[in-house]
Design a protein around this nucleic acid. Structure first.
Ligand SMILES: [Mn+2]
Ligand SMILES: [Mn+2]
Ligand SMILES: [Zn+2]
Ligand SMILES: [Zn+2]
Lengths: 140, 140
DNA sequence: CCCCTCAGTGATACCTGGTATCAGTTTCAA
DNA sequence: TTGAAACTGATACCAGGTATCACTGAGGGG
């Protein structure tokens, strides 16, 4: 069973209709780079309306099938959610490739900070930026 | 010597002109909430052109007089830079108030991750979200 | 202190990325 | 097969930010 099929099944079991538009967007997401934008998807499915692409991306995020990655400049990228537990991203500023990591060590800091500030801490966002081995060499 | 004056001096010593527009924007920033948007500033100086407000904010950021804070939804806020060294923000999701903190403990994680992934890590962004003591009580 | 110059201004148009609307279409359960 | 309603997509719209460019005023040299 292909990823596309699995995602399709999940859509229907969650009570959503499996339309051609959604199928196309899912295929495009699967065929995209590690880190892709809505624009990337649109390019792959030019016959599907812009609004539908945005709506479908939101749906996939809501269903935890893809995750949003916010870049340094504030722009959004998407990525198939292969690591569904709490995790963060190490993003290559050269080529955009991404490494997931989960042992962020922020919880300890959160606790300390909660004590000091009396805030009730609800969560955090952490992203690391750097150059992947390939980009390291070619820029080095 | 007021903050406005100090900022004005810094502008001129850095070779920028101290125009009425810039003065007004600085005054507005000083009069604003802890965490303010460009729109907040615009509301306070409606006679100053939109472009000028944006340009002045960028100038203030470039001069390290204010820092940008990216909210969970990706939108930008500004804040007078009282803690100019490397630091992060603990943002109240209730009222928007902010605590700075600097001992984020991410460098250790960076080192570990650099070893494991062979990335050359350049930096990170960390933001914590929670409820400040006041909002804690009122939502409690 | 008064010019002159050029940094700065602001109206306007434009751009990107995303949402609201709504008449028309398609899905899918009955 | 059929109909309710979920979905679509053209379009208009919005927010936030930038490019342009004729005009202006800040402020240093004379
Ligand atoms: Mn991820
Ligand atoms: Mn700060
Ligand atoms: Zn790379
Ligand atoms: Zn609060």
């Amino acid at each position: 069973m292909s990823s596309a099929h699995r995602i399709g099944s999940l859509l229907t079991t969650e009570g959503h209709r499996l339309t051609t538009g959604r199928r196309a967007v899912v295929e495009a997401a699967l065929a995209s780079d590690d880190l892709f934008s809505v624009a990337d998807v649109q390019r792959l499915v030019p016959r599907i309306g812009r609004a539908t692409v945005f709506r479908t991306m939101r749906l996939l995020v809501d269903l935890d099938l893809v995750c949003r990655v916010r870049l340094e400049d504030g722009s959004l990228r998407y990525r198939l959610r292969v690591a569904p537990e709490h995790h963060h991203h190490l993003v290559c500023t050269g080529c955009g490739s991404v490494e997931d990591f989960s042992d962020c060590g922020v919880d300890a800091v959160s606790k300390t900070l909660a004590g000091r500030t009396k805030y009730e801490i609800q969560g955090h966002r952490l992203e690391l930026y750097g150059l992947c081995p390939t980009c390291c060499v070619s820029s080095g």
